[in-house]
Computed example of a mutant assay.
Amino acid sequence: MTHDTQQPAAQETPAADRPQARRALLDAALEVFTERGYNDASLAEIAARSGIDVGSLFQHYGGKKGLYLELWEDFREEQERRTARMLAEARSRGVEDPITLFVEGARAYLEGAWENRRIGRRLVEEDGPAGFDTLRRQWDRAWVRRNARLLEVDERRRAGRVRVIVLTTIIGGAARELGDCADEAEAQEVMDEVCGILFHLWSTSLAGTDTAV
């Protein structure tokens, strides 16, 4: 006498969770957000371009806002990884000077902004989901704190905090400017100029501190 044993059915990975489908979905979302703006973007159009049905898309991302925030998280995390790699490489070469490390990190960040200029340009537009400006400001404050630690500045002191905010703001502004560069040569020229400005401002601010009475 034999008994049939029923094997449990394999769980199928939802389309929106598969790496290739996820990438196609985010690429389609970026295209539509870039062409239409966030408010006028259609979830149906994003789904059609990605090849993923609207129901699955909505289930996993909750709509346009979820897709927009996913794009932001991907961009932010990649920028942080890129900068961390550059700093690790610089330290492995024996670089210890805080401003030299800071500028190397700034260049890595700007290179990432140039390579990902489509999404970087989209994310600085005012046309975004409700609450995104608050999220972006929170990340900017965290960025300033990381830079303060890198520069060995006590951000609890107003002068030190302002110094780091100014340098960080310059990098952010330059990242936006890179979105309008015509080619890589022009982008590299902007990066070189910004790195020179960062060195100059830091040395000038330290000189002012040393001579203050």
Rank of each mutant, 00 (worst) to 15 (best):
S42G: 14
G160L: 05
E111K: 13
V190S: 04
M1T: 12
N116W: 11
A44L: 10
A142S: 12
L151D: 10
E111W: 13
F75E: 05
E31Y: 12
Q7G: 00
T211R: 13
L26W: 04
A16M: 02
A174C: 11
S56Y: 10
L43F: 04
P129F: 01
E152W: 02
G172A: 07
S205R: 10
T83Y: 01
L69M: 13
E12I: 13
R146W: 09
Q20H: 12
S92I: 01
A28E: 09
S203A: 12
A108H: 08
A187G: 04
T168H: 06
G196F: 04
W202N: 12
A24C: 03
W202Q: 10
A41Y: 05
D180P: 07
R163N: 10
T34V: 06
A182R: 14
G172S: 03
H200A: 15
R149C: 06
G94M: 06
T83Q: 13
R145M: 07
A21R: 12
E70C: 00
R82M: 07
A182K: 07
A47C: 02
P8K: 10
R176C: 00
L206Y: 11
K64P: 02
Q188F: 08
V144H: 07
A24N: 14
R156C: 04
S50A: 09
F199E: 15
L167A: 08
T168I: 05
S205E: 09
Q79L: 12
K64A: 01
S42M: 08
Q20A: 14
L26H: 08
N116Q: 14
Q7N: 09
A212C: 06
E126G: 04
R36Q: 13
A15W: 08
A24D: 13
G208D: 11
A44K: 12
E186W: 04
A44H: 11
W143L: 08
G66R: 04
D4Q: 15
F58K: 14
L69N: 14
T169P: 00
A84G: 00
Y68G: 02
T5H: 15
L123N: 00
R93Y: 05
R91D: 00
R22N: 01
Q138Y: 00
T100M: 07
G179H: 08
P14G: 01
G105N: 03
R91F: 00
A212K: 14
R149W: 08
A48E: 14
V162H: 07
T13R: 09
E177I: 03
H200T: 15
Y109F: 15
Q7I: 15
L71W: 03
